[in-house]
């Protein structure tokens, strides 16, 4: 959807046009779900976050600022809701912070890890990052958003974003290094 068509739909939604808003939902719910899932790793929770995010946008559509893309605004809300969920989940101990179980999967096949396994390991390693590091890592490395967009979504300066990204990548690499014992990553 080009920016002009998107703005037209937003203007209609501002007048209470639910049909126009539905088109915005259809165009962007995939991105919203993807971000939520990469944070939470929980299908039901991700769907709830997406629903809540769009409801929030609908209620506050008149506050939409033209200088931001709709997807930036949506990503920001989804990221905040996901981080809130993780915070409460950690409190309830629903998420295992000690990701030791991946070692069992990893060492079961010493030569090559399957893509799915690698994915699982990366996500588990990401659980050990700080809130900011995880947010930057998910948006930049897993959602592959532009650096400027990540800064806008998380309201971070470029320097702060880079610093968090550096520590996130460093921790992920160190975690992978422990598992890929005979791999080239071990060389460091």
């Amino acid at each position: 959807m080009d920016q002009e068509a998107e703005l037209d739909l937003i203007k209609k939604a501002m007048k209470g046009d639910a049909v126009a808003f539905r088109l915005l939902v259809e165009a962007h719910q995939g991105l919203a779900y993807s971000i939520a899932f990469r944070f939470t790793r929980n299908e039901q929770e991700s769907e709830d976050i997406v629903q809540e995010a769009f409801l929030k946008i609908w209620k506050n559509i008149l506050r939409y600022e033209r200088e931001f893309r709709f997807k930036t605004w949506l990503s920001k809300i989804v990221t905040n809701l996901s981080l809130d969920y993780l915070k409460s989940a950690y409190k309830k101990n629903n998420i295992d912070k000690n990701a030791n179980d991946y070692t069992m999967i990893a060492t079961s096949d010493e030569n090559k890890l399957e893509a799915d396994e690698l994915k699982g390991i990366v996500y588990q390693l990401a659980e050990q990052l700080t809130k900011k590091q995880k947010a930057v890592f998910v948006l930049r490395d897993l959602e592959q958003l532009e650096s400027e967009e990540v800064c806008r979504i998380l309201q971070l300066s470029n320097g702060n974003m880079k610093s968090n990204l550096y520590y996130a990548r460093l921790k992920i690499k160190e975690g992978l290094q422990k598992i890929y014992k005979n791999d080239e990553l071990q060389r460091l």
């Binding site: 639910a18 808003f21 539905r22 939902v25 259809e26 719910q29 995939g30 779900y33 993807s34 899932f37 990469r38 299908e43 991700s46 769907e47 997406v50 629903q51 769009f54 409801l55 609908w58 893509a115 690698l118 994915k119 990366v122 490395d141 897993l142 959602e143 592959q144 990548r169 992920i172 690499k173 992978l176 990553l185």
Partner: peptide, 29 residues
């Protein structure tokens, strides 16, 4: 490592039933 992360990023994450999710959102709205 970045190549591995790119590979993970390429695996699209999508809701099981997109139409159902849209309906749920619109019902709330």
């Amino acid at each position: 490592m970045q190549i591995s992360l790119n590979r993970i990023a390429q695996v699209k994450v999508a809701p099981e039933n997109a139409a159902k999710l849209t309906r749920a959102i619109m019902t709330k709205i």
